[in-house]
Every structure is written in structure tokens, then in C-alpha cells.
Design a protein around this nucleic acid. Structure first.
Lengths: 255, 255
DNA sequence: ATACGTCGTTCCAACAGCCGGAACGACAGG
DNA sequence: CCTGTCGTTCCGGCTGTTGGAACGACGTAT
């Protein structure tokens, strides 16, 4: 088999993990649909499903139509990945308060290397809301949360993120290195990040503030996520201060 | 290769998943330790690790000593397995209140087929505490939480659990079918479950109350987890009522 | 009724890809 | 200087994986 450089993985295991992820995204789901979306032979998918069942990750959730879904095993793995969920629990009260004060959706995003994962949400009461599925992975350079984190990182690490490549998402995403450096500088000055131009998801503006650990390193961020139709730049100062206050409150909790 | 009946899984994928779980449990961890605990050749483990890295599940967290750890990908998978975490969030306020009222550790356990997963914890302030790692899988028939769930299940399902086998854990675990039926009956009468005999973990007593969904089916449970040295049977009534009240409060939230 | 599409499931021969022992250099103690 | 352990790399033998083909069951359109 011809392999591209760097691809040394066990093929069957990669395929199996791929199926696991598809099931997570689409559960409850059947063999044929999986084979279609993953572009694999049905018989192979069937074998992978049996494997994942044997390993205790999946089970048949609808016996009649044979739909597959996740067991609880991934919960345990996921909790460990999230550091026992301590961050979530520490942040929830502040999230609630912030969402009440602003009546907007608040997201908690945790940093994972050069990316962010949305791990919690608290909705406001407004009819028009932003919606991002929990577990979604977002770019550091394309979100208000991400920028607030970048702004608290030393320059060397910011450059590393730039070097890793700035991919675009909406046409307004900051893909130019100098533009990003400028935005980081502006964020440092402000204390919070403002995404008024739908960098990542269309029609979504946001205000981000970083949460730092005991050593002062940014490990997560709050984002106030606001539909652009309702977003008023004149309000950014007030909302920014509230978001920063909430983030600081959590930072203090982390010793 | 000779296979036991029912084992049809893809061997390499099973091994890879096994390594993933070990990393989750022991992170940060190195190749050799993994090879030892999983009883696999070092070179194989190395290949599995590379595979998991390629799939985005693992990464090297300490570049110098080469220690492996989880990325954030499992968080997303885990959140989906937990139904977007809605249950956790709905339950946390009630957990906090219960833990404050009783000054004991409260666990939230979600049902997963014939098992339970501990998905959240709230500690009291006492010096001597029980400790169970989040993500731990516990038996339905061997915990107060589990029994409170069994008690709200139709008899047919209780029998199915019995048929699946009642394995022992501490010597006091209920392994006899009739004894379990009696305990279920007692729990139904009481409204809450009492484990005063360390069924599952040594020196741990507990009081459990089930949380039901909109359809009245038990989907999770609260457990008040108390070191046996401090557990007073005379107090069970008061603690049980508080636990039931907390569980009911969450049940109401679930429409 | 009949034909057709799709579902989940099973089988098996061929061969691509995995396995794991062996050997490497680097490091830390003794 | 020797020994044990670490992480990493290599490669030939063989075995476990692969995926096309065929199955019965079901639901729908003809």
C-alpha cells in the first residue's frame, strides 16, 4: 500500500474510530447510512460496529430497526479528558449569572492545543438564539473565545498558532498573520475580544474573555454569543466588562 | 486463530481501543508502562499510540519524557453520550443543595443498560470522605443508586438484570436473586434505597433516590455516599427524604 | 400481484497489512 | 563502567482483515 508521509497508523483501527465518531454524531444510526457517509463497504462497517460493541463503546439502541448508539463508556473517557470536569463545574455558576445579566447565550470553551472545544452552554431567554452543538471544535484564531486566549499567551505561542496556518471559515475570518497580530494587540488592550464580523459562524457575533489557571495561563474562555442582528457595537464595552468579570471570577476559583 | 464464540471483532482495533482506555485512566503515561499494564509488545503499543494520535484522540503532552494524554476529542464524544450533558446541568443545583443540607458527598449516576456511570460529584465538608472517580462504572444491583432505579423499573426488567447475572464485589453484595427481589420490594416501599452494608465499595454506605424522565422511566439517580463509620441507620429516614426530594426536583425539570 | 429498492446480515478466498522480536542510542543509577 | 529502562525503528513471516457477492425480510410503487 502506498502511504503518504507520516501516515503510519493501523488502518483498521483508524476506520473503526472513524465509525465511532460518525455514530456519536448521528446516533441513532444504521449500518447502511454509516457505510454511505463514511464511504466504506457495508460489510466492513458492520464488522467495525461489532468490534465497538465488543469493546463496550456502542450498543444497539433500537433492536427492531437496528440503530446504533453510544454507551456510557465515552462519558468516562470524556470526563477524564476534561480533567474530571472540574472546570465545567467551577464555571457553571458564573455562566448562569452572566447569561442572566445579559440575557444572551454564554459558551464555555476549553483550549485544546491549537483548538477550542465548546464544553458548556447557558442560554438566555431571547427567541432568536445562536446554536452550537456541545463538543464542537472551533479554531483559536477565528473565535472571540480563541482570541481572548491568544491575547493572554506569550508572543512565541501566538506565532506558533500563526505558523500552524490560519484557515478561513466565513470570508471574514482573519487569515492574514499581521491582521491577527493586530487583533491580538487590540484584545490585550481591551481585556476582552470582540468578534463583530462573523469570523467563524455566519450571523454570529461574540465577546470573549479568557479564564486563567493558577499559573496565569489561559486554559478556557467565556464567550457571549450574540446574533449579529441584535449585536450593537456601542454595547460592547458594557458586555465586555461583564464577561471579563465572570471569567475572572472563575480564574480566582482555580487557585 | 481460535476464537471463542461471539468474538468477531477486529483484533487490532480492540487493542487500540484498549490502549485508549488505559491512557485515559493513567495519563500522562509512557509507552513502556502501557505495554506492561496492557500486556502487549512495546512496539505494538507504540503503533497504536501513533494511530490514536493520527485519529486525533491522543497527543504527546510532555515532549521531553514522551508522556501521552487525551486530546479534547473525547470530550465531544462523551458529551454526546451524555445527551449533551443536559442531565448533569439540570441536576447540579439540586446536588449542591443536597450536599449542603447533609454535609455528605452526593453522586449523580446515569443508567447505562445494566450499569451505572458516575457522572458528577459534590463533596461535603467533612474530613473523611468517600471517593469514586468520575466515569466509574458501577453495577445496578450493587449500589443504592442502582437499587433505587431498579425499584422504579417494571418487574420484567428487574428479572432481566437478574438474568444477566449478579456478580459480587465485597462479600456483602446481593448476589441471590430472591434477596435482590426482596430488596427491590423494600426500596419500593421506602421510596429510596439504603446500602448500609458496603455492597460495592468497602466502608461505604449510601442512600439512593431515582430521577425519572418525562415518561416516568428512571434514567439516573442521586446517591448520598457516606463512610460506614459515620453512617447511622437511625438517620436514614431523614436523609432518605432529603435525597428523594432532590431527585424529584430534578425529575420535574425533565418535563 | 409483481417488481423493485433498501435494509441488516453472512460467508470466504486472496492478499495486504499487521505483528512483535530484535537491536538501537540515550539516559540515570549504582 | 556496567546495568536497567526508556522511547524508537526496522522488517520478514504469516494472519487477520478485506469487501464483493448473495441472502431473506421488509416496504413501496407499479
Amino acid at each position: 500500500m502506498s502511504r503518504a508521509a507520516g501516515e503510519t497508523g493501523v488502518q483498521s483501527a483508524l476506520s473503526t474510530l472513524r465509525i465511532l465518531e460518525e455514530v456519536a454524531r448521528r446516533q441513532p444510526v444504521g449500518v447502511s447510512e454509516l457505510a454511505r457517509v463514511a464511504d466504506m463497504p457495508k460489510s466492513s462497517v458492520q464488522r467495525y460496529l461489532a468490534t465497538l460493541q465488543q469493546a463496550g463503546w456502542l450498543r444497539v439502541v433500537d433492536i427492531e430497526r437496528v440503530r446504533w448508539g453510544l454507551t456510557a463508556k465515552p462519558i468516562g473517557i470524556g470526563l477524564r479528558a476534561a480533567g474530571e470536569g472540574g472546570m465545567r463545574e467551577a464555571a457553571l455558576p458564573a455562566m448562569r449569572a452572566l447569561s442572566r445579566q445579559t440575557d444572551e447565550t454564554v459558551h464555555l470553551a476549553m483550549r485544546d492545543d491549537n483548538a477550542l472545544v465548546i464544553v458548556a452552554r447557558r442560554d438566555g431567554t431571547q427567541t432568536v438564539r445562536t446554536y452550537v452543538e456541545l463538543g464542537t471544535i472551533a479554531p483559536l484564531h477565528g473565535t472571540a473565545s480563541g482570541l481572548s486566549i491568544l491575547a493572554k499567551l506569550p508572543d512565541a505561542e501566538v506565532e506558533a498558532v500563526i505558523a500552524a496556518g490560519l484557515d478561513g471559515h466565513t470570508g471574514t475570518t482573519i487569515v492574514d498573520a499581521d491582521a491577527l497580530r493586530a487583533e491580538v494587540a487590540a484584545t490585550r488592550e481591551r481585556g476582552y475580544a470582540v468578534n463583530a464580523a462573523s469570523w467563524w459562524r455566519p450571523h454570529v457575533a461574540a465577546i470573549g474573555a479568557a479564564i486563567t489557571d493558577a499559573a496565569g495561563r489561559p486554559v478556557a474562555a467565556f464567550a457571549l454569543s450574540i446574533p449579529t442582528v441584535r449585536f450593537d457595537v456601542a454595547d460592547a464595552g458594557r458586555l465586555g466588562a461583564l464577561t471579563v468579570a465572570a471569567a475572572d471570577q472563575v480564574s480566582d476559583l482555580l487557585d
